[in-house]
Design a binder for these strands. Structure first.
Lengths: 200, 200
DNA sequence: CTCACGCGTGAACCACCGTTAACATCCTCG
DNA sequence: CGAGGATGTTAACGGTGGTTCACGCGTGAG
């Protein structure tokens, strides 16, 4: 814990000159998305940033720790962004829904790789880490469930939860249809479909 | 090829008294869905049907061959079912869409495990097998694209393809929200959402 | 200057797992 | 009844891949 670099564990992205740690996480996310976390070797990740495999261990305790941090960050970003958007959207449930949809669409279009890893490789996490990720996911889902519940006052919570997962599935289809349309068009289409599905 | 049992390679499901081969495929599908194909050992699959690991090789050439057959079957069932439904639905694009949606919803509710494996473990297939599966998938998508194109005559094929993937994502969210609602209610909700999204 | 420490390297270790080999069992059919 | 094939079992092999080790090299502080 004391030998570990103090910054960079935080959430901020460090866009301009990413530290080695960040480079590794980014490269790993890309590789994990393409082949699946278990199919990617430590050497592959190293090679992707111009370093040998074992060098990874100067920055992460283990390969699993890498994956864990990756998934935790994603979940945290989604939860934080989602709650913030809803809070800023006023009282109107439809306005809240629209901003949530726009947020999720942007995220999915910006990070198709993270989307892929997020729901494919949760299983290859330690039980503790997996539980923590699931807690964050659950809270994010609950944000959606709240909005959907206010939008459909006669529906029960279970229906709203199913609805939320269905909308996620719709929006998170981006990895399957990436690059087929210019981004603006893609975003508009997905948002329209998501809204239609959510309000049906 | 000659030593291989002649029947059972076919598509029919053999519901009543499944052969060992079928038992293995079913159990493997379940395990693969839960943990991911690479995380499941041959011994695990064997144990799930009351047999040791190497016994698998009396029925399959390799673990990869198991996965390949599994994915090929799924893709074939979807393509065959989809084309058949559309052919039986007459000329009305909306009627065609409704029957396609009903078909996909039924499949997704009946086989959440297969759905999961289908788009998570394609990557761990040999290049040849993966290509074959992708060809089938593509043809199934084209069935949807045709219907969606007739439904939105002013839209280009790329939009329809994105739309198709989005609807798949919506319906195939069943593994994430399994058992939260009674099946009838679940089917009705998903179908309504899918139709709203597809016709928006 | 030099000492410590951050960052990397190549080699070795070790566990896991797919696969094969060699040997039993049982059921069927001539 | 006896031969053969389908089906299993246990033991062993071999590759892959995560992790550790011992060591090298630069750089900034005392």
């Amino acid at each position: 814990m004391l030998g570990m670099p103090a910054a960079d564990t935080a959430l901020h992205a460090d866009a301009d000159r990413p530290s080695r740690r960040e480079q590794i996480l980014r490269a790993a996310a890309q590789l994990f998305a393409e082949r699946g976390a278990r199919a990617v070797g430590v050497d592959d990740v190293g090679a992707a940033v111009g370093v040998t495999g074992p060098a990874i261990y100067r920055h992460f305790a283990s390969k699993d720790a890498m994956l864990a941090e990756m998934l935790l960050r994603i979940s945290e970003r989604l939860l934080a962004g989602g709650t913030e958007r809803v809070a800023d959207a006023g009282e109107d449930p439809l306005a809240q829904l629209r901003t949530l949809i726009a947020f999720q669409v942007d995220f999915a279009l910006d990070n198709p790789a993270l989307i892929t890893v997020h729901d494919r490789d949760l299983g290859s996490l330690s039980e503790d880490d997996a539980a923590q990720v699931r807690r964050l996911q659950r809270r994010y889902v609950e944000v959606w469930v709240g909005v959907l519940g206010r939008l459909h006052p006669r529906a029960d919570a279970a229906s709203s939860r199913v609805r939320a997962h269905a909308v996620f599935g719709l929006i998170n289809s981006t990895p399957h249809s990436a690059g087929r349309l210019p981004r603006r068009q893609m975003a508009a289409l997905l948002a329209a479909m998501a809204e239609a599905a959510a309000t049906s």
